[in-house]
């Protein structure tokens, strides 16, 4: 191990420019992927927030007793899809309407708006089919007059979310592949620059494991350093647009996962490249 570390240091000292170039190339490959990830992460956050607006409103028949409403709240709250049920009295509905809509300012009769149950669904249960199924079950209560859930909006939202998800998967895969290819090519360049050394090592009796170790350490270090640089760049980039839009950075676990991906790519790239070179000698 001591000798392998010395070889890594020797290689860096011999061609610091190439080593720095490798780190920068790895960093920019991961940075491009990181930027895409950041955009995807923020779009996902925005979609999740918008999705929280998916709710059902069951309007109750006038004169429905509080006991029946209380039982229904408990019953509906136990649906596996339902996160929360709130009973909105006519008075509360009117107060809310007066706050939000100016044309209700002169309306004072509490019975003007019907009582209702507001139902919010759990995350992952907001697909149009699920929402419609819950709506049908609500319609089954005799004291439910009508159920509204913005059917058109829910459908369009699901379409947009699916399109964004698929675009994210396709583009993310493409960015990831480009990053892998670039990191692999960078590491391969380093290995090729030391092809003569590898041949001489094998010639004088070095085992494959012995030849590999310094390259694996080198690839790992470059991957980690490139990953850290990419993380720093990805963290700094949103500052440029912070005045225009609000950007949420990755949670710590995801940010460090990016560095780990860099390290894994460096290690894998080095392992594959040196393996390929070893097969020739």
């Amino acid at each position: 191990m001591r000798l392998a570390l010395r070889e890594v240091w020797t290689a860096f000292r011999r061609s610091p420019g190439l080593s720095m170039l490798s780190i920068v190339m790895i960093a920019f490959s991961l940075f491009a992927f990181g930027l895409f990830g950041l955009v995807a992460w923020n779009i996902r956050g925005a979609l999740e927030k918008a999705e929280e607006r998916v709710e059902l409103r069951a309007y109750l028949v006038e004169g429905t007793g509080t006991e029946a409403i209380g039982a229904a709240v408990g019953d509906i709250g136990a649906f596996p899809e339902v996160a929360r049920v709130d009973h909105v009295t006519p008075q509360q509905a009117l107060e809310r309407a007066r706050k939000e809509l100016s044309e209700f300012k002169d309306v004072w009769e509490p019975e003007f708006l019907p009582a209702s149950l507001e139902i919010r669904l759990k995350p992952g249960m907001r697909e149009p089919a699920t929402v419609e199924a819950v709506a049908r079950r609500l319609q089954g209560y005799p004291f439910v007059d009508d159920v509204r859930f913005g059917e058109e909006w829910v459908r369009k939202f699901a379409l947009v979310r699916n399109a964004v998800t698929w675009a994210g998967i396709v583009l993310g895969t493409a960015f990831a592949l480009v990053s892998i290819v670039l990191v692999g090519a960078t590491i391969r360049m380093t290995v090729l620059s030391r092809a003569k050394e590898i041949a001489i090592m094998r010639l004088v009796g070095a085992t494959d494991a012995f030849v590999r170790l310094p390259f694996l350490i080198d690839g790992l270090l470059k991957g980690v350093l490139g990953g850290l640089l990419a993380l720093a760049l990805t963290w700094l980039a949103p500052a440029l647009v912070r005045n225009v839009i609000s950007v949420t950075f990755f949670p710590a676990w995801l940010a460090w996962s990016g560095v780990a991906v860099g390290a894994a790519l460096g290690l894998l790239g080095a392992g594959l490249s040196v393996g390929r070179q070893l097969r020739r000698v």
Partner: peptide, 17 residues
Amino acid sequence: AKVRRKIGSVFQDFRLL
């Protein structure tokens, strides 16, 4: 690799680092 440790190799182009 182990056999090569019992062989010395010399080339026209020296093959030095």
